[in-house]
């Protein structure tokens, strides 16, 4: 069958780079390696996989706080992060999530739920500590004011208009509900 398509004529948009010298590109081809096939160089195989978990482990970091660990491993790793141990309602949700393996959506989606609950807990903690969250600062709106002032003003104006409209509508509804006294 004859092919009448003229792909090169129609679609050769910009092939200039392909056919030019690469002399201007620092180090062109310096790391080219014809042996770089799909099993190299990601791993230097030395059989250590077959040790399974019988390798020489570093000393255990003292476990002096609650550390949740994946059910897909026998215990806690030799070191671990101590950033933010589970606490409160979000901690309870996280403990539930860690009953399930990493292969389950239950594990991960429950953690996402815990994260969202944790945000509310963060607000409460802030207020308890006498800190009123400042959305202007926390959302980086100073940067928006500096680099996208027009867009920022537009966003604020739209937000204010929508809020005002909602308040107005609610007021109108409330007025209609009030029956005139005979």
């Amino acid at each position: 069958m004859e092919n009448n398509a003229e792909p090169n004529k129609v679609y050769s948009i910009d092939r200039s780079m392909a056919n030019t010298s690469k002399a201007h590109i620092p180090g062109w081809g310096i790391d080219a390696d014809p042996e770089n096939d799909p099993t190299y160089p990601m791993k230097h195989w030395n059989g250590a996989d077959h040790e399974r978990l019988n390798y020489e482990k570093p000393p255990q970091q003292p476990i002096d706080m609650e550390v949740l660990h994946s059910v897909e491993r026998p215990g806690i790793t030799s070191v671990f992060g101590t950033s933010t141990p589970p606490s409160g309602l979000s901690g309870m949700i996280r403990r539930y999530a860690f009953k399930y393996s990493e292969a389950t959506a239950t594990h991960w989606m429950t953690l996402i739920l815990a994260d969202r609950v944790n945000v509310i807990e963060g607000y409460i903690d802030d207020l308890k500590n006498g800190h009123v969250p400042n959305p202007f600062m926390e959302r980086g709106w100073h940067g928006e004011w500096k680099y996208n002032r027009k867009g920022f003003v537009q966003t604020v104006a739209i937000g204010a208009a929508v809020t005002a409209s909602v308040i107005l509508l609610l007021n109108l509804k409330n007025k209609k509900k009030v029956k005139p006294v005979a």
Partner: peptide, 12 residues
Amino acid sequence: HESNPEATAVGG
């Protein structure tokens, strides 16, 4: 395998 207790799929 000795730096992240929370996820076996992810390193530390």
